[in-house]
């Protein structure tokens, strides 16, 4: 069973990609068919949509925390910008007659807005590291929240509404696959190797010729983009958003999903988001005590399994290899054990 997991980034020669594509197509077909034929009740659909949105949030945060090894603990701030960006685009910019056809534009607008504000965190990250960067990100999230509360055009603390419920299961599935695919591609590229080398040793990375500033800006932008996308989907699911939805507790939830599933792992992000979201639904009868359990799980994870279930390991399906059977590929002079 464990044979299919490998240490991240390398792995057995990647098998044919077909099964992956088949899974995606089947998943997409199901996401359309199941609700259409009334095979799922509204509640189950809602839970599945939440899982999808949470997978996007988790892979997005994992890119920064797990793959790059920087501390972002204020990811809800990016989600908030995306949610408001998408909601405003949808309500005030796009004419209403365009309906759901313009939904991707709204989501894209939210994602881009979030990617833009990520500079506020990326630039301090040039000089600031470790727990100090954690404070920067938290403070950033606080500023976003306070700023939104001060903006009367956006409804201030009362919130913003008027979005139609465009977020459906197929759309969430689409955006989820897109986020996983894009981030996986990014990780398995020269930029991605730069990201990993920053986690391992930033100075050595810089001295090996990696433009760490550029890599950080790109990584924060990509991560925030998808956090913003998730925010946009969220806004068009609930049809109502307010600043306090995007508080420290939201960020904490994202951290739990990352550290549950596994840092630096795409498969782990899917796993963590799914387990957590479903567990929280199953435990709904516990009422407020469920909220007590949530941070307790995080603390226990940190103490007993800080890298999570799949920490730094990857499912073979997600691994990209430039040369299918490297190792035997290169020939040349070998000075071996001279």
């Amino acid at each position: 069973m464990m044979k299919i997991f490998r240490t991240a980034i390398h792995g057995q020669p990647a098998g044919p990609r077909r099964p992956m594509l088949a899974v995606i197509i089947a998943g997409f077909a199901l996401s359309i068919a199941l609700p259409y034929f009334g095979l799922l009740n509204k509640y189950v659909i809602f839970v599945l949509i939440s899982v999808g949105i949470n997978v996007i949030l988790t892979i997005s945060l994992n890119l920064v925390n797990g793959f790059m090894g920087e501390f972002s603990v204020g990811h809800a701030g990016f989600m908030a910008v995306g949610a408001y960006g998408a909601a405003v685009t949808s309500v005030n910019v796009i004419p209403r007659w365009m309906g759901a056809a313009a939904f991707p534009t709204a989501i894209l607008a939210g994602g881009l807005a979030a990617a833009l504000v990520s500079l506020f965190v990326a630039i301090p990250s040039f000089k600031t590291r470790g727990d100090y960067l954690a404070i920067v990100t938290l403070a950033f999230a606080m500023i976003v929240k306070s700023a939104l509360e001060n903006m009367d055009v956006l409804g201030g603390p009362r919130g913003f509404m008027g979005m139609q419920q465009f977020t459906t299961l197929p759309w969430v599935f689409f955006w989820m696959v897109l986020s996983l695919w894009a981030i996986r591609n990014f990780v398995y590229s020269a930029y991605g190797r730069g990201v990993l080398s920053i986690r391992e040793d930033e100075t050595a990375s810089e001295l090996s010729g990696v433009d760490t500033r550029k890599v950080k800006v790109l990584t924060f932008a990509l991560s925030s983009f998808f956090a913003g996308v998730a925010g946009g989907l969220y806004a068009h699911l609930l049809q109502f958003i307010n600043p306090s939805m995007f508080d420290v507790i939201k960020s904490t939830e994202m951290l739990i999903m990352v550290y549950l599933g596994g840092v630096g792992s795409i498969a782990g992000s899917i796993l963590g988001a799914s387990i957590y979201t479903i567990l929280m639904e199953v435990l709904r009868p516990m009422g407020v005590w469920r909220m007590v359990l949530m941070p307790a799980v995080l603390i226990l994870l940190m103490i007993f399994r800080p890298r999570g279930i799949m920490g730094l390991r990857e499912l073979r399906w997600f691994v990209y290899k430039a040369i299918p059977h490297s190792g035997a590929a290169a020939k040349g002079q070998n000075i071996g054990n001279t």
Binding site: N65, G69, F71, V73, G130, D131, A134, V248, I249, T252, L255, Y259, V288, W289, M291, V292, M294, P295, A296, L298, I299, M302, I303, P306
Partner: peptide, 23 residues
């Protein structure tokens, strides 16, 4: 452990205290 673990744990302890009090 890495500092990141301690920071996240502290955040978790904070939320735990809030929710425990809330419960």
């Amino acid at each position: 452990a890495p500092k990141m673990s301690a920071v996240i744990t502290a955040l978790g302890v904070g939320v735990l205290l809030e929710h425990l009090t809330l419960a």
